[in-house]
Design a protein around this nucleic acid. Structure first.
Length: 275
DNA sequence: AGGGAAACCCGAACGC
DNA sequence: TGCGTTCGGGTTTCCC
């Protein structure tokens, strides 16, 4: 079993080995350089640079797809979106052309927020809830029981695929993990959420947890020249496997578009029930 | 309420 | 060879 997802996630983003303490903990943010203003979601870029100066990094955690840095008396939140990455580098190491925000620390290190496609964002706020309010439960939250999950599904009449991608319904699933979880649970992506039986709902929650756990163990997927992570792509059941055999039954995998997102599924294992 | 589309971005990979 | 077009990742916002 891997450690808690929080720990693994942060380890990956800070390029740490087993048991290593993040070098940036307890360090003071001496200055910040912004190379792409629109990476700063809040407040405006000038204010951000001014207000973060002198803050000390006290603690690092995660909520949904946000990295949460507790500073001396403010909070820094970072969302990497798809192509974003964080790395801790020594001052002697050169900047990358795609560094968007650079945080200079008081120890000859700097934290680089690198983001080829410029979709990632950072926030500096007094209260992290300003950004995080509205997120649904964590998939691994023990408080999220099978009964709760079933009740949440019943509360909507929505297609499973877009619902699972909705971060206010459940926080943390992206396109890859949603397709993988639906296949494992043998549920059609267009099936309406209020039509699942209790048993199917249990199966779905279990599949979500299983797929996420495998993703974490694999340190994420590398699917692109820029979207790099671990080796979860070697475990894909349906994602980006259009036309290739279903691991369960051998049928060729279908790809369709649902809610503007590429959606992969097995037409044999994942049957849409009659309405 | 819920679905669809556009916007934000880039560069690989394609078609011609 | 060199153009132009398409694609897709997560999220917000607007429209029907």
């Amino acid at each position: 079993m891997p450690e808690l997802p929080e720990v693994e996630t942060i380890r990956r983003f800070l390029s740490l080995g087993q048991g290593e303490r993040p070098a940036i903990l307890g360090r003071k943010l001496q200055s910040v350089e912004v190379f792409w203003e629109r990476s700063i979601a809040y407040p405006d870029s000038a204010l951000f640079v001014k207000q973060i100066k002198g803050q000390v990094i006290q603690e690092i955690s995660r909520r949904a797809k946000y990295l949460v840095f507790r500073l001396s008396d403010r909070w820094l939140l970072i969302h990497l979106r798809m192509s974003g990455d964080l790395s801790v580098r020594h001052d002697s190491q050169a900047r990358d052309p795609y560094d968007r925000v650079v945080f200079n620390l008081d120890c000859s290190l700097y934290l680089a927020f690198n983001d080829t496609r410029k979709f990632g964002k950072v926030w500096l706020v007094d209260d992290p809830e300003l950004v995080l309010a509205g997120l649904g439960p964590e998939p691994f939250d023990p408080q999220l029981t099978e009964a709760d999950f079933f009740a949440r599904l019943q509360a909507y009449r929505r297609q499973l695929k877009p619902l699972l991608l909705d971060q206010s319904f459940l926080a943390g699933l992206g396109n890859i993990y949603t397709d993988e979880a639906l296949h494992l649970a043998r549920l059609h992506p267009l099936m309406r959420s209020d039509q699942l039986s209790m048993e199917q709902s249990q199966q779905l929650l279990e599949s979500i947890r299983q797929v996420l756990m495998l993703g974490i163990e694999s340190q994420g997927a590398s699917i692109d020249w820029v979207y790099r992570g671990g080796e979860f792509q070697n475990h894909f059941r349906v994602y980006q496997r259009t036309g290739q055999p279903c691991p369960t039954c051998g049928t060729g995998i279908f790809k369709v578009t649902i809610g503007q997102r590429g959606t992969h599924f097995c037409p044999t294992c994942q049957i849409k029930p009659e309405l």
